[in-house]
Design a binder for these strands. Structure first.
Length: 515
RNA sequence: GGCGGAGUAGCUCAGUUGGUUAGAGCAGAGGAAUCAUAAUCCUUGUGUCGGGAGUUCAAAUCUCUCCUCCGCUACCA
């Protein structure tokens, strides 16, 4: 057997300065679906998510709460991990930038960049608002009557100069442009790529990569009064996850990442800074970076003031984990912004999951249980209608693989469910409940073909709705090792006579609670 | 301001390199069936394809122009 091809996928790591929200849930669920699909498609997958735990804000939040940064991030990071677990996300490692192996890894990256001559000590200066804890560009400031300057937020600013290490980002402009040119797939979707190319073309300045104004962070090698600023510390988690710099680490072969799944708001860090760092360190670059969109609550961004902040686990409890996952991935074209609302979620759950797939499984498997001695029926000769439907099911792997290759999760699901819809039409037109009396052999064939379609659908659905798909495959008595994409089609057909368990509903309908 | 994207049925969107009567899902209306989670199936749309002009035998699909919306235009991530 040939060695399996590796596939390394990551989410961004979350900043645990507040509780996880629906955006975090969306990202990790989408990445999980891709990871799960790759696994059932035969890849050696490494899927990583985690938390980015250093920085001024964490330190301040801890101060305000009267605790230590470490105690704070221990508590907060656990919430993110609990969320990922609660949403049934199959990460192989949950990395934390406070993990012990992240320091040597990041020091090594820094050292290599320094060796290249790309890191130098200078001064970082600018208009700083103490109250906002942020620097502002001069163009953003407004002059007050007394001659002083104010930030956009109205707070006073002062000119600050701070010693800082810089990365020679400006030296990488042409190499980055060449990367985008030679690998147009590196940044997706297309619209994000356009933005990045335009940004880099406009010229790059060197990047401040250390701070002396706080100390909750990784110390700069040989100059511990500096801590590394977020860019290097956070981005390097992807390398740390593979055991860098240990060449003999069992995960070393996963680098470079095949894809970073991130929010569109941090596309620049992943497509400009990150590859430049890696080029400097003479390390291979990630193959692709995908910037997904945001989920909006009825068109509005989630915010505490609007009062529409939702806890993802509350949603999962209300609708079901698989149901919520399905909604996220089916409703919104991956890469674009999308809306969610109670009505939309319920509609998807009931129409697609309970009615279309759940009911198809129930009606066909019940008939098998009652009329075929509770075992896989023996098909007779296939009619054109049978072959046509099987052909559609057998063609699904190619279509879904193609869609998943472009991270078009919504398209993959649409493809799968179009076959479910076709199977419902087939079932209605074949009327096996009539055949039961008029032509039992024909009935058995129709039920067999339907079960075969359910098998293909169940296998592919594992990536998106793992628990329900598992239930469906259990009902079909598919052996654990056979629940892979490669068995879909003529080579892996159900064996007639295999006894089947008592059918159980796989997706309940969502019933509105009494108001 | 500069660069880029989008504007197609009530809603969400598909529409490869221009080519028969512009499609899907959902919602709405009517009907059939009863195996099934009151699920399913069938039928049903007179849409100025944002406006205007142009190229072409032929444009939602190319060109120009105008209108509207959105994103990016670096150190909060």
């Amino acid at each position: 057997m040939a060695e399996r091809e590796k596939f390394y996928i990551t989410t961004a790591i979350s900043y645990p300065n507040g509780a996880p929200h629906i955006g975090h849930a969306y990202e990790v669920v989408a990445a999980d679906a891709i990871a799960r699909f790759k696994r059932i498609d035969g890849y050696d997958v490494f899927f990583m998510t985690g938390t980015d735990e250093h920085g001024l804000k964490i330190q301040q939040t801890a101060d305000k709460a009267g605790t230590t940064p470490k105690a704070l991030v221990d508590e907060m990071s656990a919430k993110f991990r609990t969320m990922a677990d609660g949403l049934n996300c199959s990460y192989d490692r949950f990395i934390r930038t406070t993990d012990a192996d992240h320091l040597p890894s990041t020091h090594e990256l820094w050292r290599r960049m320094q060796e290249k001559g790309d890191i130098y000590l200078s001064k970082y200066s600018g208009w700083y608002s103490v109250r906002d804890e942020a620097y502002y560009d001069e163009s953003e400031l407004t002059k007050q009557p007394d001659g002083s300057w104010r930030a956009p937020s109205g707070t006073p600013v002062e000119w600050i100069e701070e010693e800082s290490y810089f990365f020679r980002l400006s030296a990488y402009e042409s190499r980055l442009l060449a990367l985008y040119e030679d690998h147009p797939e590196f940044i997706a979707p297309q619209t994000r790529r356009n933005e990045v190319v335009s940004f880099v073309r406009s010229g790059l300045q060197d990047l401040s990569i250390s701070r002396t104004t706080f100390n909750w962070g990784l110390p700069v090698p040989a100059d511990p009064k500096h801590v590394m600023y977020v860019w290097i510390d956070a981005l390097n988690n992807y390398l740390t996850g593979t055991g860098f710099p240990e060449a003999d680490n069992p995960r070393a072969h996963y680098w470079p990442a095949d894809v970073h799944i991130i929010g569109k708001d941090i596309i620049r860090f992943h497509t400009v800074y990150w590859p430049a760092f890696l080029m400097s360190a003479d390390l291979p670059l990630p193959k692709r970076v995908f910037g997904h969109g945001f989920l909006l609550n009825k068109g509005e961004k989630m915010s505490k003031s609007v009062g529409n902040v939702l806890d993802p686990l509350d949603l999962a409890e209300a609708y079901g984990v698989d149901q919520l996952r399905y909604f996220f991935m089916r409703e919104v074209p991956f890469g674009q912004d999308g809306n969610y609302s109670h009505e939309a979620i319920v509609n998807r759950i009931n129409a697609d999951l309970a009615n279309d797939l759940g009911n198809l499984a129930q009606r066909s498997l019940s008939m098998i249980a009652k009329n075929c001695e509770a075992s896989v029926p023996q098909p007779a000769e296939l009619t054109q209608a049978d072959s046509d439907l099987l052909w559609l099911a057998d063609a699904l792997p190619g279509k879904v693989r193609g869609a998943m290759g472009d991270f078009a999760l919504h398209t993959a699901l649409a493809e799968i469910w179009s076959v479910v819809a076709e199977a419902n039409r087939y079932f209605a037109s074949q009327e096996p409940w009539v055949l039961r009396k008029s032509d039992p052999a024909r009935m058995a064939t129709v039920l067999y073909v339907t079960a075969e379609v359910l098998r293909a659908v169940g296998i592919l659905a594992q990536a998106f709705v793992p628990t329900a798909a598992e239930k469906l495959l259990d009902l079909l008595a598919i052996a654990p090792g056979d629940r892979v994409v490669a068995t879909i089609g003529a080579g892996g057909r159900l064996a007639p006579g295999t006894s089947l368990p008592q059918p159980q509903p796989i997706f309940p309908r969502y019933i509105e609670a009494e108001a």
